[in-house]
């Protein structure tokens, strides 16, 4: 798969229409995969693909807005929906990006793998995909791990990877299926069933841990505002001090801004240095948006986001 990718990139870079190609490369240790910007054919061999290519690279295309050439991008099905939204929200033209789709067989959640292996990810030198298992090499010997133990949450309900109009695909892209009893909204429903005070305590504890490093905002494709509302001084909605109530305002308002736009790529939860389960907050929004307005983000270019649209017969509990 990787050589097919590298040949394609060499070819694409060859005809000069592309400024650079955004993919993944090996980081400082084998289990650490990082984004890679290939500007020259010679660097194409650094590109890799595997179950540890976790980042959603779509947001990087925004940097190509003021370049005259195109930008190439390697993207998983679930992350491609961000391109649809970025085009729909007038941030970039579709023909400015060359999108290379890759068949994805499920991705590893490093935190889960560390718990299961009982060893830190540093020791893991290779993870390979093998049907419904991962071949994990730790210090020389290889062990088999059932995927359902270490899979990223979003991979349990992998949907719509085929809904995107890729320019190229490395092999046949179709949804990754795994039989597991966990349903898409399990975590959300579990929280919803908690009594109110417990939920209140749960979330206040999370918001208290937040150090307001803004990683969830900077990694999210949907947060591309030139000047974020939290950075404004007229009026000052939020203080920069990470006090629990300020953090709560920050997370709730960001959630409202992403309502109907969040494509559930899971990056905000993955990069959070203090492990705040942001995925649950945004999953709850997706559940409501689907139920209330029968809408899913990142599917079509021409649909109108739900919160800026209405139906005459919308649900109306407020009469």
């Amino acid at each position: 798969m990787e050589d097919k990718l590298q040949e394609l990139v060499v070819e694409l870079l060859g005809d000069g229409a592309m400024e650079y190609f955004i993919g993944y490369r090996q980081g400082f240790e084998p289990s650490h995969v990082v984004p890679c910007f290939v500007t020259d054919k010679s660097e194409a061999d650094r590109l890799i693909w595997g179950p540890l290519c976790l980042q959603n690279l779509s947001k990087y295309v925004l940097q190509a807005r003021d370049l005259d050439g195109k930008v190439g991008l390697l993207v998983k099905g679930c992350d491609a929906r961000a391109i649809v939204e970025l085009v729909k929200q007038h941030q970039i033209e579709r023909d400015k990006i060359v999108v290379v789709g890759v068949p994805c067989e499920g991705q590893v959640d490093p935190r889960k793998m560390e718990q299961v292996l009982g060893v830190s990810m540093e020791q893991v030198t290779d993870v390979e995909d093998a049907g419904d298992e991962f071949l994990v090499k730790v210090g020389g010997e290889v062990s088999k791990l059932g995927k359902e133990q270490v899979l990223r949450d979003k991979c349990f309900y992998c949907k719509h990877p085929t809904s995107f109009d890729y320019d190229y695909t490395l092999g046949e892209v179709q949804p990754f299926t795994i039989d597991s009893e966990s349903e898409e909204y399990d975590a959300v429903e579990k929280l919803e069933e908690l009594p109110l005070e417990e939920r209140r305590a749960y979330w206040l504890k999370q918001f208290e841990r937040c150090i307001r490093c803004n990683a969830c905002r900077e990694v999210c494709y949907g947060c591309y505002c030139k000047e974020c509302i939290f950075d404004r001084t007229d009026p000052r909605w939020l203080d920069r001090t990470p006090l629990p109530r300020e953090n709560e305002i920050y997370h709730l308002i960001r959630a409202v801004h992403l309502a109907g736009r969040c494509i559930d790529c899971g990056e905000c939860e993955r990069v959070c240095p203090v492990n705040i389960p942001l995925g649950r907050l945004y999953k709850k929004l997706q559940k409501d948006i689907a139920e209330l307005f029968d809408y899913e983000a990142g599917m079509e270019y021409d649909t109108v986001p739900p919160l800026v649209d209405f139906e005459l017969d919308d649900q109306d509990p407020f009469l």
């Binding site: 650079y20 990694v219 240095p273």
Partner: peptide, 16 residues
Amino acid sequence: EKLSLPCLGCGICTYV
């Protein structure tokens, strides 16, 4: 220029 391409401008590196 090239080094800052993947940087997202979040505050993690300075906060940790």
